[in-house]
Amino acid sequence: MAWVFLVLAGIGEMTGMLFLKLSDGFSKVKPTIGAITAACFSFYFLSLSLIHLPVGTAYGIWTGIGSAGTVLIGMLFFKESAHLKRVFFIGCIVAGVVGLKFVS
């Protein structure tokens, strides 16, 4: 069950990032409310998963889902670069974050 909570937390994180970018530095009301709601959802489920999982494991998977998802959101919704170099370094970070889980 802890893993289900963790996946929900990761999805909440992606959604939160989408709204956070749309909120333009918390200056637009609706996206700001959306971002806060998604963040609360995400943290709540992350916290639940942490009762049974080590912090490194939970954090790794959570941010792995969140960062890979956020990169896709950036490319799909905000036309951010899909340049190979950028994808490579983001890949290093995602692999590093998730990899830390497997050795923790």
């Binding site: 956070l20 956020t70 990169v71 950036g74 905000f78 951010e80 670069s81 370094f89």
Partner: peptide, 8 residues
């Protein structure tokens, strides 16, 4: 960029 910012 959100992808860059979040990854870092």
């Amino acid at each position: 960029d959100i992808g860059t910012g979040y990854a870092i």
